[in-house]
Design a protein around this nucleic acid. Structure first.
Length: 378
RNA sequence: GGGUAGGUGGCAGAGCGGUCAAUUGCUUCAGACUGUAAAUCUGACGCCUUCGGGCUACGGGGGUUCGAAUCCCUCCCUACCCA
């Protein structure tokens, strides 16, 4: 079980500072949930995850089911023991893979649309590589090609074995090019799945329902209302977020207005640096995002002066740290020039150095925002 | 001295008469990435351009041909083998 305590609410926005207590320790909120899809924060050891001030992790049901399989994780005593991480852990349900391996893959889009698209996804349409049915989704494993079925029951049973502190209901994340009817039908199915998830779960893990509705106001509200009416321990806010940041905040507002204030809200998969203050002000408590870790492996460092692309040859003679204002051990030790050289030489160490720095930078940034809320500055 | 195999764009390496400014990989440069099939993907990469095209290019020089990176002659260079 979890306990959520709000310590302070902002007077100028919907932001709040709180504590999310789990049987594996307490996380301060708002907080970035560090992505550990395959039970690892890519390139880091679990000790290092602590050093970068990450307080909670999110692993992935779909990926861990394929490899190594929940039975293996369970035989190690669950995710915490398996990966030697004693802090709070979430597992995402696999609902995002319904999108990312389905329509996301077909049309090459993420959850936020970057450019205008002519196509739209209509009710009844199926993705190329998987089949979505009333009971769940038929996937084709990218590991060995075998067909694999996952629905709400399967997802919950897997998540029970994985043993995270907080688990998510199985949903369908909808595409930004899905039309109103598709999104509506999908959301209704996600709602039916939500009830099945609640009925299936036997453990005392916290279960979060995921709201959908995409860019459509009526659907966002409908979904949030419905999820709020069910006895979930908290809520995930999922689905697509339109085509720009303004509308994203709008959609968040529609959703959050309907959710009970005393339960934690997790925004799924959003967290570019510039998004963070807005989503916190909208009242989001936790959010996960691949950006700090993913961009690190692409050679990008986030700093107080903006992004730096360390692949640029022009940085090779730069003796300065990634960020002169950062107190992480990478910035205390290594130069931009060194990291740039390692990257250009295709070494693997810079991926770790950048991952370490980016997470520390994001976590420190959010720590400061928590302080600001506490001090009434935000 | 004799023999053999070669010399192609920053590098490696295809092509062996026209569709070749020249496959491909690497390098270089630019860009993308938001619940991670992601140490990945996309684009550019001789010079000039009013974007139609123009110019110079496959070791040097000469030749055959309507047409040569591709065939012939010659010179230079490289690797290996024999003396």
């Amino acid at each position: 079980m979890i306990e959520f305590k709000i310590l302070k609410k902002s007077k100028t926005s919907k932001a709040r500072v709180g504590l999310l207590k789990t049987s594996h320790g307490t996380a301060e909120t708002p907080s970035l949930v560090t992505v550990a899809t395959q039970a690892v924060v890519k390139t880091l050891t679990s000790e290092e995850i602590k050093e970068v001030k990450s307080q909670l992790l999110i692993c992935n049901t779909y990926h861990l089911h394929l490899r190594p399989g929940e039975a293996v994780v369970k035989s190690h005593g669950g995710l915490h023991k398996f990966m030697k991480w004693q802090g709070p852990v979430m597992t995402d349900s696999g609902g995002f893979q319904v999108f990312s391996l389905g329509f996301g893959r077909d049309f090459g889009t993420g959850k936020i649309l970057k450019e205008k698209r002519e196509e739209d996804i209509k009710a009844g349409q199926q993705p190329k590589f998987l089949k979505i049915t009333e009971d769940g989704v038929y996937f084709k494993s990218y590991v060995d090609g075998r067909e694999m079925f996952m629905g709400p029951r399967e997802s919950i049973r897997i998540q029970e074995k994985l043993g995270a502190d907080i688990i998510f209901a199985f949903d369908e994340c909808t595409s930004p090019i899905a039309n109103h009817e598709y999104t509506k039908k999908s959301l209704e199915k996600t709602h039916r799945w939500a009830r099945i998830c609640l009925e299936t779960k036997k453990t005392n893990q916290a279960l979060f329902g995921i709201t959908q509705g995409g860019k459509f106001k009526d659907l966002r509200i409908k979904s949030a209302e419905y999820m709020a009416s069910l006895p979930f321990d908290g809520f995930g806010i999922g689905g697509e977020f339109g085509s720009n940041k303004k509308t994203m905040v709008q959609m968040l507002n529609w959703t959050l207005k309907e959710l009970p204030e005393n339960k934690p809200r997790h925004l799924l998969g959003i967290g570019h640096l510039e998004d963070i203050p807005q989503i916190i002000k909208a009242g989001v408590d936790t959010f996960d995002c691949i950006v700090p870790t993913h961009y690190a492996r692409r050679g990008i460092a986030f700093t107080s002066e903006g992004r730096i692309d360390l692949r640029k040859a022009s940085l090779m003679k730069d003796k300065r740290p990634l960020d002169k204002n950062c107190s992480c051990s990478v910035c205390q030790t290594y130069s931009r020039g060194y990291i740039s050289h390692l990257l250009r030489a295709h070494e693997i160490t810079p991926l770790k150095l950048l991952t370490f720095h980016n997470l520390y930078f994001f976590n420190t940034y959010i720590e400061k925002l928590r302080q600001d809320i506490k001090k009434g500055k935000m």
